[in-house]
Nucleic acid binder design. Structure first.
Lengths: 363, 363
DNA sequence: TTGAAAGCGTTACCAC
DNA sequence: GTGGTAACGCTTTCAA
């Protein structure tokens, strides 16, 4: 690999000290405009790009953040969330000179170990905590490690900075939609209850139904997979008092549910209405097209990156309060910092997208 | 962030020089067994983990490799390949102390720039070139940059080390399967012809049909998406002499094709047989279950990582011959190095998986 | 076998 | 405003 040009050569060409080059190129004061221009010119001529290796050692920063995906590879395959989420992270990290280090853990404890090693080797300046579990062990871990971290859609009282996207408003819209269609018997195909986001969705659903004076009905726990949705359909559709409207915790499960309903000869939406959550592309193509809640993984990623960089660059403590996003996006007048403890941003809520899989109650 | 223990403290505790600690911990000669043991003990006691920052600066290596995904985020969403592929990369990189840096480029030239910056900033020691295009500009770029790189499923004559998974054997199996079912009118829903892997699939298909004395039939170019598959179905099924068997270049397109066929009232497989390529999970759940070719993204990732590390650690030139994988996986007695120019590994071929979407010719 | 010291490419702190 | 120079934490000579 050809030897790259270093700061020394730039200094030589500009006829200044390397410290001046450093100051000039990082737009720090202490350099006259004339010299600064001359230095920038020299750097340009030479095609100088500072070595992140030297920079990290000296600046005590890795200029990288980590994301550990803890996931059965089988499930990851069809997960629509990550592509956009990572794209969102990247869109903020890259312009600010940070790289994203992606790791995959399979077993839960292995995942924890990944964080430990990332911190121990000073590989990253902070990490993103995604798919939070109830009492997620990663939270005390990063706190103990002193590793800056941000959460994505955490539970209330989460002690670190976090990005949230509200689900309750969208779920209320869904419930109103279903109620207005005359439905009375409801069911929910939930995600694993150990996940915070699964819990959020069940709770929003129950609360919205209760607020509408409806019986929340059954909750069947599935696992966010297509196959899980199918099994839930077998269960629910076999019941004598089967529901007329089903809300699945994600689109993949909803599509699995619809497929199985079709197989069992139960027509959607004539005999049963089905709604999903996520707003994945596929939902627009299946027959009938899936009614769902559109989320913003890309925006979640971008905001998560912003918060993380704020925590990293401004202080560094894991529990340190990150700056709150611009007020325009903060929901319903809630003081996000006070409400959550760790500070954070709330992005636009998930919205209901009505398509063909929900319709009037049968009969 | 709490101060981590450095090599200096380990040396102090063991009562030796830091150079001895370095030698001992990296299992290099020049340290007596006794001191080595004492040093390891001290390192353990202190929980010492070498800082990758210091290491990279000194060793002139980043201990990281890059993967730039060049992709419309919309498409990435449903791409089943990346999760497993990245998992495969990681499974080799991590145990060897390397991290994976993931970048996303949207525009083609932006992607090239990502590689340039990765190299210029000495962020990575090498890169993985995935989804190769015909005459991919990344190839001359990495050669010019002197950046070690490996290709995944490249065209013949590819000048860099590469991993390949043969498609022709599987496609021949598919053709035999279809021919034995009595089909005579075929069509292929191809991927964009600028992609090497799309070309591989069309060519394998044409060659297999010709070898079976069948007319290769129509080739409709789509884009590997669900929607592209649907549009291809609209096109092909509207023709007077419509095919009775269609091979789609990937599963997503095949599923889109089937959905549209269903909508148009053309039954699969009674009136038309449909086959895909990839072996994604979803294909097993759609109705009818999709006949497809199972590929090994995880294995491709693992082998790509192995080749890349060989190139990085053994010499470093981009065009340097990487060691060939163990003979057991090399296909058909072909000397892979001689055949490809850049050296590389051939993994088990993609295999036909017959399910319900292919059946006897109508009539 | 061991230890001292010179880098590696930056940043940051001080003198000048 | 400048230009030395000491870190940063490691690897790698080279003497002892």
């Amino acid at each position: 690999m050809a030897d790259r040009v270093t700061i020394v050569e730039v200094a030589a060409r500009a006829g200044v000290a390397i410290s001046s080059v450093s100051s000039a190129l990082n737009d720090r004061p202490g350099v006259s405009d004339r010299t600064r221009a001359r230095i920038k010119q020299a750097a340009d001529d030479l095609g100088f790009v500072p070595s992140v290796r030297g920079r990290s050692l000296s600046a005590k920063r890795a200029f990288a953040v980590g994301l550990v995906v803890h996931r059965d590879p089988f499930v990851l395959e069809s997960d629509p969330f990550f592509g956009s989420f990572i794209g969102g992270l990247e869109s903020v990290l890259d312009p600010r000179g940070y790289a994203l280090i992606l790791q995959m853990g399979t077993a839960a404890d292995e995942t924890l170990d990944r964080y430990r090693r990332l911190a121990a080797g000073r590989r990253v300046d902070g990490v993103v905590l995604n798919e939070l579990a109830v009492d997620d062990p990663r939270v005390p871990l990063v706190q103990q490690l002193g590793l800056p971290a941000v959460g994505v859609n955490p539970a209330p009282g989460f002690p670190l900075p976090a990005v949230r996207q509200d689900v309750s408003a969208g779920v209320r819209e869904l419930v109103e939609h279903l109620v207005s269609l005359g439905h009375r018997r409801f069911a929910h195909v939930a995600g694993p209850s150990r996940f915070v986001h699964a819990v959020h969705r069940v709770e929003a659903w129950r609360e919205a139904l209760i607020a509408s004076d409806r019986d929340p009905g059954l909750v069947v726990e599935a696992d966010f997979t297509y196959e899980g949705g199918r099994r839930a359909a077998v269960d629910l559709l076999g019941r004598s008092d089967r529901p007329t409207a089903v809300f699945c915790a994600n689109d993949l499960a909803a599509i699995g549910f619809m497929t199985e309903a079709d197989r069992l000869g139960v027509r959607v939406p004539e005999e049963i209405s089905v709604a999903g959550f996520d707003g994945i592309e596929l939902g627009g193509y299946v027959r009938p097209a899936l009614t769902t809640m559109t989320t913003s993984p890309r925006l979640l990623g971008a905001e998560a990156a912003r918060l993380l960089l704020a925590a990293v660059e401004g202080g560094g403590a894991a529990a340190g309060g990150a700056s709150v996003g611009d007020g325009a996006e903060v929901g319903a007048g809630v003081d996000v910092v006070a409400a959550t403890g760790g500070g954070g941003t709330e992005i636009e809520p998930a919205r209901l997208l009505v398509r063909a899989s929900t319709g009037a109650v049968p009969g």
